[in-house]
Structure formats: structure tokens, C-alpha cells
Design a protein around this nucleic acid. Structure first.
Lengths: 205, 205
DNA sequence: TGTACATCAGTGAACGCGCGTTCACTGATGTAC
DNA sequence: TGTACATCAGTGAACGCGCGTTCACTGATGTAC
């Protein structure tokens, strides 16, 4: 069959696609994703402008891939770390994995933090969905209850995720020394939220 | 003297300047401030592209004016409302004034929420400064203590401001009906933060 | 095995377009005396 | 009062430039038989 390209060819293509996504993240950290041009991204990735179309129809599609693939993976990782930790330290683990992600891949974190409230409504919606998932997971990890995908997550867990994402933004701008303090403050604030009695006897926001 | 233009002329100029700022806010809500063009903004404001230069040197200067003037004013208003309220309801008043600002001037709120974590480091810094001020004021209003400009604001108050700004972003996307729930959740979460015992005996973050 | 054909990522030339910026000018208003 | 001059917001023409997109082509790889 002609339809199935060789593994090697597929991998080659995948590398260029990944290079385009990394190039976009890199440039977005400097000027914001909404202001990126197709030619600018192709140049940064080392391909001809016209080759861009072999991978994405336009910049919007590239942005959606960034959210779905890279952003989705790192947010899922935060949740996985919380679930893998002993119940009492779920919060500490989420905070630590966020801070290590900031150190390891600042451009991706900047993208997530910015696009969460950015200009594109579809990106905002996609990211919010993934953050709601993280809130659910965090709640399950901290309480030991099973995560339910149907009901809304407890508002304390949602607020905790908001604080985590904001702290990522602050950490990105802060010098190394400031980050330890940040970790303490953040852990305290999330602990305070999760320890507080749920409002009006129910946990649905 | 020639140096002092007539009051009328000054007012005329001020109107065009304000029109440019409102045009930028309007367009930024759709495409993001970073992607705005000078010609696009001038067109929306109803003047020739070249007239833009009579008011701002470039788009960056216009952005700085938006932060310093419009964003600064609305954030100061939030604090003033908290101070004017009886001590026990300071939090409720901040939340309410934020939500009414979302209803009254969604484009300005979108701008503040987005640029707080946006692409321009100088805008982020300017906005963070004003939000720290709001946190200090909120703490003073909620506790009755005098606001101190020198020491950092208590982390509970800072976290509260983060939640308020995030809730503004959510409210901007939410249907009218959802906003009442949002107000309850937000008030509860801030209350939980402010009521929690300060970490490690001190209040400096 | 050899030969003819299909697929497809990457490319350079070319297009029309909107951009930011400069320039010299207009015309209304205010000032000097 | 009249007259000459200064200020300055707004303007249209013009510039060079980078943009997104189309097109036909190349060349490597895989398939059919």
C-alpha cells in the first residue's frame, strides 16, 4: 500500500512539526502568540514559509495543537504527580511539579498561563477544560475520594488550580531566589482553601 | 502666551486621545493587544493613520497609557469601595464592584485580565504593582489595620486579589446566570483565605 | 530482479495587500503689538 | 482695532517592507507486478 508511509518518513515529518511548535512557543514567549506570523514561525523552525502548510492549515491550527498536545500533557502530568503522592502531600507535589515545569520548560508554561486568559476564545475554552480536569484530580488526590467527571469539581480545588497557574506566571518573572518563598506561600494558601469547610453544606460551585 | 492652548482645544484633543484608547480596548478584546496595528486602531477611532502620532509615539505608549490611566483607575476604585464599606463586608464589596465593572466595561476588564499575564513584561510589571496596591487596601479594609506601603501585603490578601482577577476572566466568558454563582463561590474562597491563620506566625510572603 | 508509477515533504518565484513611517501642507485658533 | 505671525491637530501621497497564499516543480521513497 502506498497509503502507509515508512516509519522513518513519518518520524522525519514529526520532527519538523515539533520544530514548528517549539518555534511558536519560543516566539510567543517574547511577543505573544496572537501576534505571531506564519513566516516568522517557519523561519525560526528553519523551513521555507510554504512548507508550513505541509503541517498546519494556519496559525490557529498550530495553536490548537499546542494546547491539545503540549499544554494538555503538562497539565495531565501535574495531576498524575498528585495522584502518585501520599494523600497528605498531594498539594505539595502539585506545587513542586508546577515549579519544576517552570524551570524545565518556561516557554510552555508562559504559553499556558497567557492563553488561559488570552485573545482566542476557543483556546481559552480548551485550556479551561483541562484545568477543570486538573482541579478534579487534585481534589481526588487530596481527599482520597474518586474523581467524578460528571459533577463540577469542588470550588476549593478550582480556586487552588487558579492560584497554581497564577504562581506559575509570577515564578516565570521572578528570580530563582524568590521561588522558594513562592512555593511556601502557595502551599499555605492552597492548604487554607482545601481545609476550609465547604460552603452551604454542598460542594458544587 | 502661545504655550497654553485654549481649554476648548485641549478638550478636543483629549476626546480624540480617549477615542484611540477606547478603540484599542475594543479591538484588543477581539484579537489581543499585542496583535493590534496602529492603522487598525486609528481607523477604528475615526482618524487618519498619520494623526495617531499627534497623541502617541507608538502602540506601546498607548498601551502604557491604558494601564496607567484606565486600568489604574478601575483597580483603585475596587480598593476605594472596600475601604468605604463596613469592615465585615469589605470582601463582598470588592467582589461586587469587580462584577459590576465586568458588566459595565467588559473590554477594559478583559484588557486588565489578559495583560496581567500578557506578552509585554513592562505592562505586566505596571499592572502587578497596581494589584499589589489593591491587595494592601483589601487587607486594610478587611482588618481595620492601616495599609502600609512599605511592607509586602499579606499573602492571603494577595491570593484573594488573584482569585478576584481570575473570576473577572471567567465572568467575561460566562452567561449572566452563571455570575451569581460565581459571586458566591468567590466570596466564599476569599473569606476562607482571609480567615485562615497566617503562616509561620508572620504575614510576610 | 527491473521498470513504471504514485506519494508527498520541501521549495522558490510571484501575487496583491496592509503595514509603519516620513513629509509637506492646510486651516483653525491664539498671541503680539 | 487691525495685521502679521506662531502653534498645532489633522491630513493625503508616497515609500519600502514583510505578510499570507498560490502555483508548478523537485527529488526521495515506496508500491505494483
Amino acid at each position: 500500500m502506498v497509503l502507509r508511509a515508512s516509519l522513518e518518513k513519518k518520524e522525519e515529518k514529526e520532527k519538523v512539526r515539533a520544530a514548528l511548535m517549539r518555534a511558536a512557543l519560543h516566539l510567543a514567549a517574547a511577543h505573544g502568540f496572537a501576534s505571531l506570523g506564519l513566516r516568522e514561525v517557519a523561519r525560526e523552525a528553519g523551513i521555507a514559509p510554504t512548507s508550513f502548510y505541509r503541517h498546519f492549515a494556519d496559525m490557529e491550527e498550530l495553536g490548537a495543537a499546542l494546547v491539545r498536545e503540549l499544554a494538555g500533557r503538562i497539565l495531565r502530568d501535574f495531576g498524575d504527580r498528585a495522584l502518585a503522592a501520599p494523600k497528605g502531600s498531594a498539594v505539595v507535589h502539585v506545587v513542586q511539579s508546577m515549579l519544576s515545569a517552570v524551570a524545565r520548560d518556561p516557554e510552555l508554561l508562559h504559553f499556558v498561563v497567557a492563553e488561559r486568559v488570552g485573545a482566542s476564545a476557543s483556546m481559552r475554552a480548551l485550556l479551561r477544560e483541562k484545568l477543570v480536569g486538573l482541579a478534579r484530580t487534585l481534589h481526588a488526590a487530596a481527599t482520597g475520594e474518586a474523581a467524578s467527571a460528571s459533577s463540577p469539581p469542588p470550588i476549593a480545588a478550582e480556586a487552588a488550580v487558579v492560584l497554581v497557574m497564577d504562581a506559575a506566571g509570577v515564578a516565570l518573572d521572578a528570580p530563582e531566589a524568590r521561588r522558594a518563598q513562592l512555593q511556601e506561600s502557595l502551599t499555605w494558601a492552597i492548604g487554607a482553601l482545601l481545609a476550609a469547610p465547604a460552603p452551604e453544606g454542598k460542594e458544587t460551585p
